[in-house]
Amino acid sequence: MIVKELAEQLELKVLAGEEGLDREIKGGYCGDLLSEVMAKAPEGCVWLTVQGHQNIMAVAVLRDMSAVILVGGHSPDEDTKQKADKEGIPILLWPGSAFDLAGRIYAGLA
């Protein structure tokens, strides 16, 4: 599945990084501690987090992520969006809980 398909299926709002919408989703990871995500998130994952500040994008780039999804109604800072555009990694929004979203994505990937 590519990011665009996921966004359409689950009605996730695409806020930035549209250029990366055709990235392939190979897995997922949930986490808000950057060191933990940096150490453990798999390549090609979608990352579910509440962190919207710009430093999340370096983690997304260094981990070769396919997209970042801000959950729980959190939104990215302006700088974060600019970095996402520059790096071509989409930022999507999900108003509900990480648990709910992770379950749906997991079911879709399985």
Binding site: D32, L33, L34, S35, E36, V37, M38, A39, T49, Q51, H53, N55, I56
Partner: peptide, 16 residues
């Protein structure tokens, strides 16, 4: 609050 300060940086550097 920004998700830093887990105290995992140096241990992760050692491990990797």
């Amino acid at each position: 609050e920004m998700g830093f300060g887990a105290g995992m940086g140096l241990p992760n550097m050692k491990r990797n």
